[in-house]
Design a protein around this nucleic acid. Sequence first.
DNA 1: CGATATATAGAGTCCGTACTCCGTTTAGAA
DNA 2: TTCTAAACGGAGTACGGACTCTATATATCG
Lengths: 184, 184
Amino acid sequence: MRADARDNRTRILGAAEEVFGRAPSASTDDVAKLAGVGIATVFRHFPTKVELLEAVLTLRLERLRNRAVRLADETDPGSAFFGFFSQVVSEATSKLAIADALSASGSAVGQDARNAGTGLREAFGNLLARAQHSGDVRADAEFPEVYALLIGASRGATAVGLEPAVRDRMLALLYDGLRPGRTT
Amino acid sequence: MRADARDNRTRILGAAEEVFGRAPSASTDDVAKLAGVGIATVFRHFPTKVELLEAVLTLRLERLRNRAVRLADETDPGSAFFGFFSQVVSEATSKLAIADALSASGSAVGQDARNAGTGLREAFGNLLARAQHSGDVRADAEFPEVYALLIGASRGATAVGLEPAVRDRMLALLYDGLRPGRTT
DNA sequence: CGATATATAGAGTCCGTACTCCGTTTAGAA
DNA sequence: TTCTAAACGGAGTACGGACTCTATATATCG
């Protein structure tokens, strides 16, 4: 693969993330314009719009996964879990696409995206398990519903353009439900 | 307004709700087909696709509002609040559009839809206030974050096609955070 | 029943967007 | 420096979907 081709691929991916982050319905032309290349170049690297969208999705899922993995190594279990949760939700407030990425993490079509989604869920499951072991999260909460809460909080925050203060109070309510010491 | 015109308007609205409930990106032709009328008829009643979508949105918001009002009259405050919350979320699981309606309730463009959104928020605010007075919901939860949770839970449930059991466990976690007796 | 304003159907127009074709340019090995 | 395979740009194609035009049909009032 030629060096300029590799560069262009990277620039296109970056532009696509930016453009689709602002408006998921944006056109391929918009991506090409922002990347500073011709349309044909975009389609050479990503033969179909779906494949381009999937590449962006994969990128985002992997980035989230890496963050989860890093947090698991660096911080105590409780802060790692709640910190990750808060980070994702607050990022989703401004970046439209994060929430979509999460939602799609289960049902992605392409192989790469599906793998990335699985990786993210594993990493987040690990954060959850550790926080449960250390007693920071109630033990009877299972992964599916906690993940659903993460998705929901992200999408909720996205939709409304939630103010930071409200978002934090919303998360506080959520976290109170997740902490141990209450019977259902 | 002629009687047949009124009938058609109603049929078109019904068809639109059905069609857009299944696929928000559906075309106007699809709506006309299902309603059993020509495309032109759809456009005569709703001069623009946006106006058709807004009419559907208004319908949905008013329906939700009515349910909230009815519940406030019939049941004890706690059951009314949590019952409404659960109903909305479980309905959102199958009906794609409920969540979108909620999200748009704050930022609707047309006057009708905006009024309907305000009405719904008032009715839900009333449910919340009564549940707080009766001690079923913690007093320090303010409306914006609770409404954000409702939207989030609905959108979360929608996105993943959540199984009922998982959805209920998710709601249980949420409700534990909303009930009194815990310090933030 | 007849007159007429009101409604309707669906073919036609226009435009935006995904994707292709091909003549031109350029990286990089000899 | 030269040569060629690889990459590029952008005009061109195909298609779907929002919206219109007009000839036809029908409700309703006297």
